[in-house]
Nucleic acid binder design. Structure first.
Lengths: 210, 210
DNA sequence: GGATCGGTCAAACGTTCGTTTGATACGCTT
DNA sequence: AAGCGTATCAAACGAACGTTTGACCGATCC
Protein backbone atom coordinates (compact mmCIF):
# COMPACT_ATOMS: atom_id res chain seq x y z
CA UNK A 1 0.00 0.00 0.00
CA UNK A 2 1.56 3.27 -1.13
CA UNK A 3 1.39 6.41 1.01
CA UNK A 4 0.27 9.64 -0.65
CA UNK A 5 1.38 11.80 2.31
CA UNK A 6 5.16 12.03 2.78
CA UNK A 7 6.58 10.20 5.75
CA UNK A 8 7.92 13.45 7.20
CA UNK A 9 4.43 14.96 7.34
CA UNK A 10 2.88 11.81 8.73
CA UNK A 11 5.48 11.91 11.50
CA UNK A 12 4.63 15.54 12.31
CA UNK A 13 0.90 14.78 12.42
CA UNK A 14 1.29 11.71 14.58
CA UNK A 15 3.77 13.43 16.91
CA UNK A 16 1.53 16.46 17.39
CA UNK A 17 -1.43 14.30 18.28
CA UNK A 18 0.46 11.94 20.56
CA UNK A 19 2.49 14.70 22.24
CA UNK A 20 -0.72 16.52 23.14
CA UNK A 21 -2.31 13.32 24.34
CA UNK A 22 0.50 11.81 26.36
CA UNK A 23 3.06 14.59 26.81
CA UNK A 24 6.53 14.88 25.36
CA UNK A 25 8.22 12.40 27.64
CA UNK A 26 5.18 10.14 27.64
CA UNK A 27 5.36 9.65 23.89
CA UNK A 28 8.05 7.33 22.61
CA UNK A 29 9.44 7.34 19.12
CA UNK A 30 8.10 3.83 18.80
CA UNK A 31 4.52 5.01 19.32
CA UNK A 32 5.00 7.92 16.94
CA UNK A 33 6.51 5.90 14.15
CA UNK A 34 3.94 3.14 14.60
CA UNK A 35 1.06 5.63 14.43
CA UNK A 36 2.64 7.26 11.38
CA UNK A 37 3.07 3.86 9.76
CA UNK A 38 6.79 4.50 9.51
CA UNK A 39 9.95 2.82 10.64
CA UNK A 40 11.44 3.50 14.06
CA UNK A 41 14.51 5.08 12.52
CA UNK A 42 12.45 7.50 10.42
CA UNK A 43 12.40 10.25 13.06
CA UNK A 44 16.16 10.28 13.46
CA UNK A 45 16.57 10.20 9.71
CA UNK A 46 14.20 13.07 8.90
CA UNK A 47 14.73 15.27 11.97
CA UNK A 48 18.01 14.13 13.49
CA UNK A 49 16.66 13.62 16.99
CA UNK A 50 13.49 13.62 19.05
CA UNK A 51 14.15 17.18 20.22
CA UNK A 52 14.37 18.45 16.66
CA UNK A 53 11.07 16.74 15.91
CA UNK A 54 9.51 18.59 18.84
CA UNK A 55 10.84 21.91 17.55
CA UNK A 56 9.46 21.16 14.09
CA UNK A 57 6.02 20.36 15.51
CA UNK A 58 5.96 23.72 17.30
CA UNK A 59 7.20 25.85 14.43
CA UNK A 60 4.67 24.42 12.02
CA UNK A 61 1.78 25.90 14.01
CA UNK A 62 3.24 28.88 15.85
CA UNK A 63 4.58 30.77 12.85
CA UNK A 64 1.20 31.10 11.05
CA UNK A 65 -0.65 31.98 14.27
CA UNK A 66 1.70 34.79 15.26
CA UNK A 67 1.78 36.00 11.66
CA UNK A 68 -1.99 36.28 11.68
CA UNK A 69 -1.85 38.14 15.00
CA UNK A 70 0.52 40.76 13.61
CA UNK A 71 -1.56 41.07 10.43
CA UNK A 72 -4.71 41.77 12.44
CA UNK A 73 -2.84 44.21 14.65
CA UNK A 74 -1.57 46.13 11.64
CA UNK A 75 -5.14 46.36 10.37
CA UNK A 76 -6.43 47.59 13.74
CA UNK A 77 -3.71 50.22 14.04
CA UNK A 78 -4.26 51.40 10.46
CA UNK A 79 -8.03 51.60 10.94
CA UNK A 80 -7.68 53.95 13.89
CA UNK A 81 -4.69 56.00 12.70
CA UNK A 82 -3.70 58.61 13.46
CA UNK A 83 -5.71 58.10 16.66
CA UNK A 84 -4.79 55.43 19.20
CA UNK A 85 -5.94 51.93 18.28
CA UNK A 86 -9.15 50.58 19.81
CA UNK A 87 -8.53 48.39 22.87
CA UNK A 88 -11.02 45.77 21.85
CA UNK A 89 -9.59 45.61 18.34
CA UNK A 90 -6.06 45.11 19.69
CA UNK A 91 -7.18 42.41 22.09
CA UNK A 92 -9.13 40.79 19.28
CA UNK A 93 -5.99 40.70 17.15
CA UNK A 94 -4.18 39.00 20.00
CA UNK A 95 -6.84 36.55 21.14
CA UNK A 96 -8.69 35.53 17.97
CA UNK A 97 -5.86 33.74 16.11
CA UNK A 98 -4.90 31.81 19.23
CA UNK A 99 -8.47 30.84 20.00
CA UNK A 100 -9.03 29.87 16.39
CA UNK A 101 -5.91 27.75 16.22
CA UNK A 102 -6.89 26.10 19.46
CA UNK A 103 -10.11 24.83 17.91
CA UNK A 104 -9.36 23.83 14.32
CA UNK A 105 -6.80 21.32 13.26
CA UNK A 106 -4.51 22.79 15.88
CA UNK A 107 -6.74 21.87 18.80
CA UNK A 108 -4.41 19.18 20.00
CA UNK A 109 -1.42 21.32 19.28
CA UNK A 110 -2.58 24.04 21.62
CA UNK A 111 -2.95 21.60 24.43
CA UNK A 112 0.58 20.61 23.70
CA UNK A 113 1.80 24.20 23.69
CA UNK A 114 0.33 24.85 27.11
CA UNK A 115 1.92 21.71 28.44
CA UNK A 116 5.25 22.38 26.85
CA UNK A 117 5.19 25.86 28.30
CA UNK A 118 5.78 24.21 31.63
CA UNK A 119 8.03 21.50 30.34
CA UNK A 120 11.06 20.44 32.29
CA UNK A 121 13.21 20.67 29.17
CA UNK A 122 14.92 24.04 28.90
CA UNK A 123 15.71 23.49 25.22
CA UNK A 124 12.04 23.06 24.39
CA UNK A 125 11.05 26.08 26.46
CA UNK A 126 13.50 28.42 24.77
CA UNK A 127 12.55 27.09 21.37
CA UNK A 128 8.99 28.22 22.03
CA UNK A 129 9.77 31.60 23.56
CA UNK A 130 11.83 32.56 20.51
CA UNK A 131 8.69 32.38 18.41
CA UNK A 132 6.98 35.16 20.38
CA UNK A 133 9.53 37.99 20.34
CA UNK A 134 7.83 40.14 17.70
CA UNK A 135 4.36 39.57 19.11
CA UNK A 136 5.34 40.71 22.61
CA UNK A 137 7.02 43.87 21.37
CA UNK A 138 4.31 44.91 18.91
CA UNK A 139 1.31 44.27 21.16
CA UNK A 140 3.01 45.88 24.15
CA UNK A 141 3.32 49.13 22.23
CA UNK A 142 -0.20 48.98 20.84
CA UNK A 143 -1.78 48.36 24.23
CA UNK A 144 0.17 51.21 25.76
CA UNK A 145 -1.23 53.48 23.07
CA UNK A 146 -4.77 52.19 23.57
CA UNK A 147 -4.62 52.58 27.35
CA UNK A 148 -2.44 55.64 27.93
CA UNK A 149 -3.91 56.26 31.39
CA UNK A 150 -2.78 52.86 32.72
CA UNK A 151 0.78 52.78 34.13
CA UNK A 152 3.11 50.45 32.26
CA UNK A 153 3.65 47.92 35.08
CA UNK A 154 -0.10 47.76 35.64
CA UNK A 155 -0.53 47.13 31.93
CA UNK A 156 1.90 44.23 31.99
CA UNK A 157 0.09 42.66 34.90
CA UNK A 158 -3.27 42.85 33.14
CA UNK A 159 -1.85 41.41 29.93
CA UNK A 160 -0.47 38.63 32.07
CA UNK A 161 -3.93 37.94 33.49
CA UNK A 162 -5.44 38.03 30.02
CA UNK A 163 -2.97 35.51 28.66
CA UNK A 164 -3.82 33.26 31.57
CA UNK A 165 -7.51 33.44 30.77
CA UNK A 166 -6.78 32.72 27.11
CA UNK A 167 -4.57 29.71 27.71
CA UNK A 168 -6.88 28.23 30.29
CA UNK A 169 -9.82 28.69 27.95
CA UNK A 170 -8.23 27.01 24.98
CA UNK A 171 -6.74 24.13 26.91
CA UNK A 172 -9.38 23.31 29.49
CA UNK A 173 -12.76 23.83 27.86
CA UNK A 174 -13.47 20.19 28.53
CA UNK A 175 -13.05 20.90 32.20
CA UNK A 176 -15.53 23.79 32.01
CA UNK A 177 -18.11 21.69 30.21
CA UNK A 178 -17.72 19.11 32.94
CA UNK A 179 -17.87 21.56 35.85
CA UNK A 180 -20.90 23.35 34.44
CA UNK A 181 -22.77 20.12 33.86
CA UNK A 182 -23.03 20.79 30.15
CA UNK A 183 -24.37 24.29 30.67
CA UNK A 184 -21.41 25.87 28.92
CA UNK A 185 -21.10 25.02 25.26
CA UNK A 186 -17.89 25.82 23.48
CA UNK A 187 -19.12 24.80 20.05
CA UNK A 188 -19.73 28.39 18.96
CA UNK A 189 -16.26 29.82 18.54
CA UNK A 190 -17.34 33.40 17.91
CA UNK A 191 -19.46 33.32 21.06
CA UNK A 192 -16.52 32.08 23.11
CA UNK A 193 -14.31 34.75 21.61
CA UNK A 194 -16.91 37.41 22.40
CA UNK A 195 -17.10 36.29 26.03
CA UNK A 196 -13.34 36.20 26.38
CA UNK A 197 -13.08 39.63 24.75
CA UNK A 198 -15.70 41.07 27.10
CA UNK A 199 -13.83 39.70 30.06
CA UNK A 200 -10.44 40.89 28.83
CA UNK A 201 -11.62 44.37 27.86
CA UNK A 202 -13.30 44.83 31.24
CA UNK A 203 -10.28 43.56 33.11
CA UNK A 204 -7.71 45.43 31.05
CA UNK A 205 -9.46 48.77 31.41
CA UNK A 206 -9.86 48.20 35.14
CA UNK A 207 -13.58 48.39 35.58
CA UNK A 208 -13.64 51.88 34.03
CA UNK A 209 -14.12 50.33 30.62
CA UNK A 210 -16.01 51.12 27.48
CA UNK B 1 24.78 11.27 61.16
CA UNK B 2 21.26 10.90 62.49
CA UNK B 3 18.27 12.48 60.73
CA UNK B 4 15.83 14.51 62.82
CA UNK B 5 13.21 14.66 60.03
CA UNK B 6 11.53 11.31 59.28
CA UNK B 7 12.44 9.71 55.98
CA UNK B 8 8.84 9.82 54.84
CA UNK B 9 8.74 13.62 55.18
CA UNK B 10 12.14 14.07 53.56
CA UNK B 11 10.84 12.07 50.61
CA UNK B 12 7.76 14.28 50.30
CA UNK B 13 9.86 17.46 50.43
CA UNK B 14 12.37 16.24 47.89
CA UNK B 15 9.68 14.88 45.59
CA UNK B 16 7.69 18.12 45.67
CA UNK B 17 10.74 20.18 44.78
CA UNK B 18 12.02 17.86 42.07
CA UNK B 19 8.57 17.21 40.56
CA UNK B 20 8.04 20.95 40.17
CA UNK B 21 11.50 21.40 38.74
CA UNK B 22 11.69 18.51 36.31
CA UNK B 23 8.12 17.23 35.99
CA UNK B 24 6.64 13.97 37.14
CA UNK B 25 8.11 11.80 34.43
CA UNK B 26 11.35 13.75 34.44
CA UNK B 27 12.02 12.93 38.07
CA UNK B 28 13.23 9.43 38.82
CA UNK B 29 12.96 7.71 42.15
CA UNK B 30 16.72 7.63 42.17
CA UNK B 31 16.98 11.41 42.12
CA UNK B 32 14.30 11.74 44.77
CA UNK B 33 15.80 9.26 47.17
CA UNK B 34 19.27 10.66 46.62
CA UNK B 35 18.08 14.21 47.34
CA UNK B 36 16.22 12.98 50.41
CA UNK B 37 19.32 11.11 51.58
CA UNK B 38 17.33 7.89 51.58
CA UNK B 39 17.60 4.50 49.99
CA UNK B 40 16.17 3.82 46.55
CA UNK B 41 13.67 1.37 47.98
CA UNK B 42 12.37 3.90 50.53
CA UNK B 43 9.65 5.26 48.25
CA UNK B 44 8.18 1.87 47.52
CA UNK B 45 8.41 0.98 51.18
CA UNK B 46 6.70 4.11 52.53
CA UNK B 47 4.23 4.82 49.73
CA UNK B 48 3.93 1.59 47.79
CA UNK B 49 4.63 3.08 44.38
CA UNK B 50 5.66 6.26 42.63
CA UNK B 51 2.04 7.11 41.83
CA UNK B 52 1.06 6.93 45.49
CA UNK B 53 3.94 9.23 46.31
CA UNK B 54 2.60 11.73 43.78
CA UNK B 55 -0.86 11.57 45.33
CA UNK B 56 0.62 12.11 48.79
CA UNK B 57 2.54 15.17 47.59
CA UNK B 58 -0.67 16.70 46.24
CA UNK B 59 -2.87 15.98 49.21
CA UNK B 60 -0.42 17.46 51.66
CA UNK B 61 -0.84 20.93 50.12
CA UNK B 62 -4.30 20.89 48.54
CA UNK B 63 -6.29 19.95 51.63
CA UNK B 64 -5.16 22.96 53.74
CA UNK B 65 -5.54 25.38 50.83
CA UNK B 66 -9.09 24.38 49.98
CA UNK B 67 -9.94 24.29 53.68
CA UNK B 68 -8.79 27.88 54.02
CA UNK B 69 -10.83 28.84 50.96
CA UNK B 70 -14.03 27.43 52.44
CA UNK B 71 -13.28 29.07 55.81
CA UNK B 72 -12.89 32.49 54.17
CA UNK B 73 -16.03 31.93 52.11
CA UNK B 74 -18.04 31.10 55.22
CA UNK B 75 -16.81 34.31 56.82
CA UNK B 76 -17.72 36.37 53.74
CA UNK B 77 -21.19 34.85 53.53
CA UNK B 78 -21.78 35.34 57.25
CA UNK B 79 -20.59 38.95 57.14
CA UNK B 80 -23.14 39.87 54.47
CA UNK B 81 -26.06 37.70 55.65
CA UNK B 82 -28.89 37.82 55.11
CA UNK B 83 -27.94 39.90 52.08
CA UNK B 84 -26.02 38.40 49.16
CA UNK B 85 -22.26 38.07 49.74
CA UNK B 86 -19.96 40.72 48.34
CA UNK B 87 -18.41 39.74 44.99
CA UNK B 88 -14.96 40.95 45.89
CA UNK B 89 -15.07 39.12 49.21
CA UNK B 90 -16.05 35.87 47.52
CA UNK B 91 -13.33 36.21 44.91
CA UNK B 92 -10.88 37.07 47.66
CA UNK B 93 -11.79 33.88 49.50
CA UNK B 94 -11.14 31.94 46.31
CA UNK B 95 -7.97 33.64 45.13
CA UNK B 96 -6.08 34.58 48.29
CA UNK B 97 -5.34 31.09 49.67
CA UNK B 98 -4.17 29.89 46.27
CA UNK B 99 -1.99 32.93 45.68
CA UNK B 100 -0.60 32.64 49.18
CA UNK B 101 0.19 28.97 48.84
CA UNK B 102 1.83 29.68 45.51
CA UNK B 103 4.33 31.97 47.16
CA UNK B 104 5.25 30.50 50.54
CA UNK B 105 6.67 27.07 51.10
CA UNK B 106 4.27 25.83 48.48
CA UNK B 107 5.72 27.91 45.67
CA UNK B 108 7.25 24.91 43.95
CA UNK B 109 4.19 22.85 44.65
CA UNK B 110 1.94 25.23 42.77
CA UNK B 111 4.11 25.04 39.73
CA UNK B 112 3.72 21.32 40.02
CA UNK B 113 -0.04 21.52 40.37
CA UNK B 114 -0.36 23.55 37.20
CA UNK B 115 1.85 21.12 35.36
CA UNK B 116 0.09 18.08 36.71
CA UNK B 117 -3.23 19.61 35.71
CA UNK B 118 -2.21 18.90 32.15
CA UNK B 119 -0.45 15.67 32.90
CA UNK B 120 -0.74 12.74 30.57
CA UNK B 121 -1.53 10.42 33.49
CA UNK B 122 -5.25 10.04 34.01
CA UNK B 123 -4.74 8.63 37.49
CA UNK B 124 -2.90 11.75 38.61
CA UNK B 125 -5.48 14.02 37.02
CA UNK B 126 -8.44 12.40 38.74
CA UNK B 127 -6.57 12.36 42.03
CA UNK B 128 -6.33 16.14 41.85
CA UNK B 129 -9.86 16.84 40.68
CA UNK B 130 -11.27 14.90 43.62
CA UNK B 131 -9.76 17.45 45.96
CA UNK B 132 -11.85 20.29 44.50
CA UNK B 133 -15.40 18.96 44.67
CA UNK B 134 -16.54 20.98 47.69
CA UNK B 135 -14.82 24.15 46.53
CA UNK B 136 -16.53 24.10 43.14
CA UNK B 137 -19.98 23.55 44.61
CA UNK B 138 -19.72 26.13 47.39
CA UNK B 139 -18.17 28.93 45.34
CA UNK B 140 -20.54 28.34 42.45
CA UNK B 141 -23.49 29.00 44.71
CA UNK B 142 -21.91 32.02 46.36
CA UNK B 143 -21.02 33.66 43.06
CA UNK B 144 -24.51 33.10 41.73
CA UNK B 145 -25.86 34.89 44.80
CA UNK B 146 -23.38 37.74 44.45
CA UNK B 147 -24.11 38.21 40.74
CA UNK B 148 -27.81 37.40 40.35
CA UNK B 149 -28.10 39.38 37.12
CA UNK B 150 -25.49 37.26 35.31
CA UNK B 151 -26.88 34.13 33.62
CA UNK B 152 -25.44 30.90 34.99
CA UNK B 153 -23.54 29.83 31.85
CA UNK B 154 -22.03 33.29 31.58
CA UNK B 155 -21.00 33.01 35.21
CA UNK B 156 -19.22 29.71 34.61
CA UNK B 157 -17.32 31.18 31.70
CA UNK B 158 -16.11 34.12 33.72
CA UNK B 159 -15.05 31.89 36.60
CA UNK B 160 -13.17 29.85 34.04
CA UNK B 161 -11.35 32.97 32.82
CA UNK B 162 -10.58 33.98 36.41
CA UNK B 163 -9.08 30.62 37.24
CA UNK B 164 -6.91 30.93 34.16
CA UNK B 165 -5.63 34.31 35.28
CA UNK B 166 -4.94 32.94 38.76
CA UNK B 167 -3.03 29.86 37.60
CA UNK B 168 -1.02 31.78 35.06
CA UNK B 169 -0.15 34.38 37.67
CA UNK B 170 1.05 31.93 40.28
CA UNK B 171 2.98 29.75 37.91
CA UNK B 172 4.50 32.20 35.46
CA UNK B 173 5.43 35.31 37.41
CA UNK B 174 9.00 34.73 36.39
CA UNK B 175 7.90 35.04 32.80
CA UNK B 176 6.18 38.36 33.54
CA UNK B 177 9.24 39.76 35.28
CA UNK B 178 11.25 38.79 32.24
CA UNK B 179 8.81 40.18 29.67
CA UNK B 180 8.41 43.46 31.53
CA UNK B 181 12.15 43.94 31.85
CA UNK B 182 11.92 43.96 35.64
CA UNK B 183 9.14 46.54 35.67
CA UNK B 184 6.72 44.18 37.34
CA UNK B 185 7.69 43.13 40.83
CA UNK B 186 5.89 40.22 42.41
CA UNK B 187 7.58 40.57 45.79
CA UNK B 188 4.58 42.31 47.37
CA UNK B 189 1.99 39.58 47.66
CA UNK B 190 -0.86 41.80 48.81
CA UNK B 191 -0.25 44.11 45.85
CA UNK B 192 -0.36 41.21 43.43
CA UNK B 193 -3.54 39.95 45.07
CA UNK B 194 -5.08 43.42 44.81
CA UNK B 195 -4.26 43.62 41.10
CA UNK B 196 -5.63 40.16 40.43
CA UNK B 197 -8.75 40.97 42.43
CA UNK B 198 -9.29 44.21 40.51
CA UNK B 199 -8.96 42.32 37.26
CA UNK B 200 -11.24 39.48 38.35
CA UNK B 201 -13.93 41.74 39.82
CA UNK B 202 -13.99 43.86 36.68
CA UNK B 203 -14.10 40.84 34.42
CA UNK B 204 -16.64 38.91 36.49
CA UNK B 205 -19.10 41.79 36.69
CA UNK B 206 -18.73 42.39 32.97
CA UNK B 207 -17.55 45.97 32.83
CA UNK B 208 -20.54 47.14 34.89
CA UNK B 209 -18.57 46.59 38.07
CA UNK B 210 -18.07 48.22 41.42
C1' DG C 1 23.54 -0.71 -17.49
C1' DG C 2 26.31 0.30 -13.68
C1' DA C 3 26.66 4.06 -10.12
C1' DT C 4 24.47 7.14 -7.00
C1' DC C 5 21.43 8.82 -3.64
C1' DG C 6 17.16 9.49 -0.83
C1' DG C 7 14.40 6.65 1.79
C1' DT C 8 13.06 2.59 4.44
C1' DC C 9 13.85 -1.53 7.05
C1' DA C 10 14.98 -5.07 10.97
C1' DA C 11 18.10 -5.57 14.53
C1' DA C 12 20.94 -4.36 18.00
C1' DC C 13 23.35 -0.85 21.02
C1' DG C 14 23.92 1.05 25.87
C1' DT C 15 21.29 3.53 29.33
C1' DT C 16 17.79 4.43 32.58
C1' DC C 17 13.61 3.44 34.52
C1' DG C 18 10.22 1.48 38.54
C1' DT C 19 10.07 -2.30 41.24
C1' DT C 20 11.45 -6.43 43.96
C1' DT C 21 14.35 -9.10 46.87
C1' DG C 22 16.86 -10.78 50.88
C1' DA C 23 19.98 -9.37 54.34
C1' DT C 24 20.98 -6.29 58.13
C1' DA C 25 20.42 -3.09 62.05
C1' DC C 26 17.57 -0.82 65.59
C1' DG C 27 13.93 -0.33 69.25
C1' DC C 28 10.42 -2.39 71.43
C1' DT C 29 7.86 -5.87 74.55
C1' DT C 30 7.88 -10.20 77.20
C1' DA D 1 18.08 -12.36 76.66
C1' DA D 2 15.08 -13.76 73.23
C1' DG D 3 11.59 -12.49 69.91
C1' DC D 4 9.48 -9.29 66.75
C1' DG D 5 7.99 -5.68 63.88
C1' DT D 6 9.95 -1.30 61.64
C1' DA D 7 13.18 0.66 58.76
C1' DT D 8 17.08 0.81 55.87
C1' DC D 9 20.41 -1.07 52.75
C1' DA D 10 22.97 -2.95 48.37
C1' DA D 11 21.96 -5.53 44.51
C1' DA D 12 19.52 -7.24 40.96
C1' DC D 13 15.21 -7.75 37.97
C1' DG D 14 12.76 -7.06 33.43
C1' DA D 15 11.05 -3.53 30.56
C1' DA D 16 11.21 0.55 27.81
C1' DC D 17 13.73 4.22 26.14
C1' DG D 18 16.57 7.13 22.19
C1' DT D 19 19.87 6.23 19.04
C1' DT D 20 22.95 3.78 15.70
C1' DT D 21 24.05 0.51 12.30
C1' DG D 22 24.29 -1.85 7.90
C1' DA D 23 21.59 -3.96 4.50
C1' DC D 24 18.03 -3.26 1.04
C1' DC D 25 15.00 -0.90 -2.50
C1' DG D 26 13.76 2.11 -6.43
C1' DA D 27 14.32 6.12 -9.07
C1' DT D 28 17.61 9.15 -11.44
C1' DC D 29 21.78 10.34 -13.86
C1' DC D 30 26.09 9.61 -16.54
Amino acid sequence: MTQTVPTRDRLLDAAERLFAEHGLDGTSLRRITTAADANLAAVNYHFGSKLELVRAVFERRLAPMNGERLRLLDAAVAAAAPAAPDLRAVLHAFLAPALSLGRKDGREFFVLIARAHSTPHAEVQSAIVEQFGDVIARFGGALQAALPEVPLPELFWRVHFTIGALCHTVVNTDLLRLASGGLCDDADETAVLARLLDFAVAGMSGGAAR
